[in-house]
Design a protein around this nucleic acid. Structure first.
Length: 633
DNA sequence: TTAGGGTTAG
């Protein structure tokens, strides 16, 4: 029978007195109660009792069942429909709850609720305020602007324009349909008909449309802020790439004594992960632990992702194993995290466990799996999973999947096969694929092919500096210095080069270095350390590889230019200010050049330091003279 | 007797 913490269906007991049911039946109804969030099984049990009592056609009982079903996730829509169809004379209440079942985001076609609304009107039933909230919800889920406007017209015609719930739903609808101006119009129509949800909905509409400074002003103006107002503003900053501002807002909220909830913690952790700065995220994590905040699925998943992005993959694995409950996102972040760290075999093993647990892979799962294959150069496995994805799971490959495959094939030297794959793609071509191929031309010294692709790319996107850089590197490797100069000049005329930088967290601060940087307060010591590193790596037999240097300068100057790459300055600073037992963690915006990669391996050996570099596309974990990427990147 | 806003994976 049902446990004590249950909420009886009050209508049922009322019904009993009305029909003077027998005492025995009264007891049956008394036990026919449901908890506030019943499971599908519990609802089905209640349904069975109603059927046994011969009340399957009663609008009130069935309306309640539908109300519970509309709240529960993953309820088969066919089941709701069969309940609704059994009602002899559906009331507005029953219609509303069926509309709500149809409107839910997990229903395949929320707009079916509009058809039900029409049939309700044909039955001469008058919609009420609840009807419109659910209908507008359906239009929001479907991002259906035209239908939404039609519902809005009905709202006005039938005189529900001053209902605050409906107005809030309208603001939300126009936001979901990317019509922020319409949201604003509804918001401004009546300043008296607003509550905190109205303000929050408008705030969300502004941040979602990227109007962050307008949102910021509104947030300051708001007299009545609740935890969702803060959550919306923090999320707004983070989703618009203003990560530091998002974290500052999070701090401000805490200083005001407002306790963060799950949504806020998840956003703050995600911002810290994106920044790649470990101390901040660790601080949030320790706060979560100190207040005994439960390791819920979203919090745990974000923590796993965050540690993977910090380079602490072992910590991610530990958390993954600790999580009492996992969803598909949890598995995906673990798979993608391991792939980011080039642990290809572990990725494939985890994918098997994922399937054994009864999960069905989605597009992102395969991005992780294919990325792992690509980074480890596992050609046959990559081909196998690419086929598995389309043939067994019916997932249409997206740009990212093709990207992994092109990268895998091209870097393995199968450049013709990679080019063929690009030609046969079923999605619109992204120049990044040709750019991947261009990278492979550099590895294999294919000057002619590289020239063709490089020129094609430059034609397609003349303002992007990356294509010129890659082409110039191909020429540099072939020591065709005149061509290097020509491409560099073109680049200087047409583009603005993105400056490379490296970050390191030390002594409670973030230090950023550019190549050849002399701005740091410990500049003298850093360059002294760089010199000492240079001598020791030379003693260890290192010979500089100057092909990454594009400048048309003398050989000695080229050597010096490499020596002063931003990551080397950051590493020198790291050796200077951290303890030997500490790992040196660097975050770099561009990819590590071959020479720096080689030198960092040697540094890790002769200085006995663990160095983790997160570059533009992956992690390099340097230890005892080796890198986790096994020089394949 | 049914209602609204903010959250995690490439």
């Amino acid at each position: 029978m049902f446990i004590s913490k249950t909420k009886p269906l009050r209508c049922l007991t009322k019904h009993i007195s009305k029909f003077h049911l027998s005492t025995a039946l009264f007891h049956t109804w008394h036990f026919l109660s449901l908890p506030s969030s019943p499971s599908l099984t519990q609802i089905k049990q209640a349904h069975a009792r109603i059927l046994v009592s011969g009340l399957a056609a009663d609008a009130r009982f069935m309306g309640h069942l539908l109300a519970h079903l509309s709240l529960s996730d993953s309820v088969p829509l066919g089941y709701c429909k069969s309940i609704f169809r059994a009602i002899s004379f559906p009331s507005v209440f029953a219609f509303n709850n069926m509309i709500r079942c149809l409107a839910k985001g997990n229903s395949n076609s929320p707009l079916q609720s509009l058809a039900l609304y029409s049939s309700m009107q044909r039955g001469y039933l008058k919609p009420n305020n609840y009807t419109f909230t659910f209908l507008l919800q359906a239009c929001s889920f479907a991002s259906a602007n035209t239908e939404g406007i039609q519902v809005h017209t009905h709202v006005m015609k039938l005189g529900f324009g001053n209902d605050v719930f409906i107005r809030n739903a309208l603001i939300h609808l126009y936001c979901a349909c990317s019509r922020v101006e319409n949201s604003k119009r509804v918001f401004e129509e009546d300043a008296l008909c607003r509550d905190v949800v109205t303000w929050n909905s408008m705030l969300a509409a502004l941040v979602r449309s990227g109007q962050i400074s307008v949102a910021e002003r509104m947030f300051v103006e708001m007299l009545d802020k609740d935890v969702i107002s803060w959550s919306t503003m923090i999320t707004g900053y983070v989703q618009n790439g203003l990560l530091k501002k998002g974290l500052e807002c999070f701090n401000e909220m805490r200083e005001k004594g407002i306790k963060p909830n799950e949504a806020i913690l998840v956003t703050a952790l995600s911002a810290s992960a994106q920044l790649g700065l470990i101390s901040y995220g660790r601080l949030i994590h320790s706060t979560i632990e100190s207040v005994n905040f439960p390791l819920t699925v979203p919090v745990g998943t974000t923590l796993i992702d965050m540690y993977a992005k910090y380079g602490c993959i072992e910590q991610s694995k530990f958390l993954f194993n600790c999580m009492p409950k996992k969803d598909i996102c949890t598995w995906n972040v673990m798979i993608c995290g391991l792939a980011l760290h080039c642990h290809a075999k572990q990725v494939l093993a985890l994918f098997q466990s994922f399937i054994s647990e009864g999960f069905s892979p989605v597009n992102i799962t395969f991005i992780g799996v294919l990325n792992a294959c690509s980074r480890a150069g596992m050609v046959s496995e990559g081909r196998h999973y690419f086929k598995l994805m389309t043939n067994d799971y019916g997932i249409q490959p997206e740009m990212e999947h093709y990207g992994c495959m092109v990268d895998l094939l091209a870097r393995a030297g199968l450049i013709d096969e990679a080019a063929q794959l690009i030609e046969t793609m079923v999605v619109p071509l992204d120049p990044v694929l040709w750019s991947t191929l261009l990278g492979a031309c550099k590895i294999y010294g294919l000057v002619e092919m590289g020239e063709n692709i490089g020129n094609k790319l430059i034609q397609l996107d003349p303002n992007r500096d990356g294509h010129y850089v890659q082409l110039a590197r191909i020429y540099a490797k072939a020591r065709k210095w005149e061509d290097v100069v020509r491409v560099r000049r073109l680049m200087a005329e047409r583009t603005r080069k993105i400056a490379g930088w490296s970050l390191i967290e030390a002594q409670g601060r973030v230090h950023r270095f550019f190549a050849g940087d002399r701005e740091h307060e410990r500049c003298y010591d850093i360059y002294k350390m760089l010199e000492s590193i240079g001598l020791r790596v030379a003693e260890a037999g290192y010979l500089p590889n100057i092909s990454p240097v594009l400048h048309d300068i003398g050989e000695e100057e080229k050597e010096n230019a490499i020596k002063e790459h931003s990551e080397r300055l950051a590493i020198a600073f790291g050796i200077l200010v951290t303890e030997v037992r500490d790992c040196i963690r660097i975050v770099k915006n561009l990819r590590v050049c071959e020479d720096c990669h080689e030198v960092t391996k040697i540094i890790s050996r002769i200085f006995k330091r663990e160095i983790i570099v997160r570059d533009g596309s992956r992690f390099h974990h340097f230890k005892e003279g080796k890198c986790s990427c096994l020089d394949y990147w």
